[in-house]
Design a protein around this nucleic acid. Structure first.
Lengths: 225, 225
DNA sequence: CTCTTTCGCTACGAGTCGTAGCGTAACTCT
DNA sequence: AGAGTTACGCTACGACTCGTAGCGAAAGAG
C-alpha cells in the first residue's frame, strides 16, 4: 500500500494502525480489500475514463467519504489497485538468459493484456506528467520494485558466464546500476509499446525475436529472420 | 487531420469542403488552426486531466458547439492537436547507423519533453485501450506514419553495408516488415519508458548507451560500460 | 436571390466532484 | 466501566463539466 493518506492529522504519534500508541477505531482492512477489488472491477468494465469514485464506493459498499479519507483521488486509488498486480511477476530459472528473458516478457505481456492493467497503467502515467507526487509514487510502487527482475536475471547470467561480471569499485557499481536501468527501460518499454501503442500481440514468436535482438543486437537479428 | 467528423450527415456527396459539389458556408480553416493551437496551449497549462472542451473553445474564441461539430470529443481533438507534432521528426544522414539512431532518439526525446506531447500521448493511448476506433486512429496518425524513420534508417544502413540486405521473395519482405515493427517498438518504447515512466532524462549519454545496446546486444553493452 | 451549411449564442438536464456536518460504531487507555 | 479518540455511513450541497437543442445570423454556391 503506497498511496494511503495520513490516518490522523491531529494524532500525536505516527505509528501504524495496529501498533500501540494508536487510539480510536481502526480502519477496516476488509474495506480496503473491497475498495481495491471494486476499483479493479470498475476498471475492467468502465476503463479509466468512465470510472468514478462514486461508482467504486457503490461497488465496494462503502460510503464515498470513506474513499476520500484514504486516497486523495482517482489517481492514487487506481495506482494502488493495480500496483500489487505487478508483484506477481517472477523470474523462474529456465537455464539460459535467452529463456529467462522470453519468460519474463511473456509474463509481463500477460499482465498488460488484462484490461484493468493496461487502461490504468497508461492513464496514471499520463496524469503523472503533471503531478510530481504521483510520478514519485509510481516509481516507488511499480518501477523500482520490478527492477528486481532485471537484477536477478543479470546476476544469473553472470554466474552462468553469459554476461561479463561487474567491474570493481564504485564506478563498477554505478555502471551496473545504469545498465540495469537501461535494460529495464528497453524491455518494459518495448513490451508496453508493442502491446498498447502498436496494439499487436506479444506472443511467443515476438518474444523470441525481441530477445534475439536484445542479446545479439541489430546485426544478429537481421541475419536470422 | 485524421479525426475530422463528417461535414454534412445529410449531404449527398462526400467530397471535401473546398471541392466542387459542396454548397453552403464552408468551415473556417482559421477556426481549425485556432482550435488546435488552443488545445495545445491548454494541454501545456492544464494537462490532459484538467483540460475541458469549454476551456479550449474559450481560448480559441469559438463556440463550444463548433468544437463538437468537428470532433467527437476530447480524445479525438487532442489526438489531432498533437499528431502533427510527430511529423517534424527527421532522420538526417549522419554517416553511420549509430549516429543516425542517436540523432533520432534525441529528437524523439525532445518531442516527448514538451508538456503537451507527453501528457496527451499517454492519455490518448490509455483511452484507446477501451476505444477501438481511437486506437486505429492513433496507429494511422502516429505509429504508422513514423515507421518511415525506421525504414529509412535501415535502408541507409544496408546501403552502407552495416546491415545485411533483405532476403528475396515474399518471405524476405515479410521478415523485413517484422523487423521494422520490432525495431520501432524497441526504440520508441525505450525512449517513452525512460522519459515518462522512469522519469529520467534522455540525454546524449543515455542515447549513446542505448544505441550501443541496440547495435551490439547485451554482451556488447556490458563490456563497454 | 435562393439554397445550403456553418457559426455564435443561450439554455438546459444529467452527471461528477470533493467537502461539510451529523450521529453512530469500534477500539484504547485510565 | 467510563472517557477519549478515531473511523464509518449517510445526506446534502455548490461548483463544475458534459453534450445537446434551438435560434437567428453569416458566408459561400448555383
Amino acid at each position: 500500500m503506497v498511496g494511503r493518506m495520513q490516518c490522523s492529522p491531529t494524532g500525536p504519534r505516527k505509528g501504524r494502525a495496529r501498533l500501540t500508541g494508536r487510539t480510536g477505531r481502526p480502519r477496516s482492512a476488509a474495506a480496503d480489500a473491497a475498495i481495491l477489488d471494486a476499483t479493479r472491477a470498475a476498471l475492467v468494465e468502465l476503463g479509466w475514463g468512465k470510472l468514478t469514485m462514486g461508482d467504486v464506493a457503490a461497488r465496494a459498499k462503502v460510503a464515498k467519504t470513506t474513499l476520500y479519507r484514504r486516497w486523495a483521488g482517482k489517481n492514487e486509488l487506481v495506482l494502488d489497485a493495480v500496483a500489487v498486480l505487478f508483484d506477481e511477476l517472477e523470474l523462474p530459472d529456465r537455464g539460459s538468459l535467452k529463456d529467462d528473458i522470453e519468460g519474463v516478457v511473456l509474463q509481463f505481456a500477460a499482465l498488460l493484456a488484462r484490461p484493468e492493467t493496461k487502461t490504468a497503467l497508461m492513464a496514471v502515467v499520463a496524469e503523472s506528467t503533471t503531478d510530481d507526487a504521483l510520478r514519485t509514487r509510481i516509481r516507488e510502487a511499480v518501477v523500482e520494485r520490478q527492477k528486481r527482475l532485471v537484477v536477478q536475471g543479470r546476476q544469473r547470467a553472470q554466474r552462468r558466464g553469459e554476461l561479463p561480471p561487474d567491474g570493481g569499485g564504485p564506478e563498477g557499481a554505478a555502471a551496473a546500476a545504469r545498465s540495469v536501468d537501461l535494460i529495464f527501460d528497453v524491455i518494459a518499454g518495448a513490451v508496453v509499446h508493442r502491446a498498447l501503442v502498436s496494439g499487436e500481440p506479444v506472443d511467443a514468436a515476438w518474444a523470441a525475436r525481441f530477445t534475439t535482438l536484445l542479446l545479439a543486437g541489430l546485426g544478429g537479428l537481421e541475419t536470422r529472420d
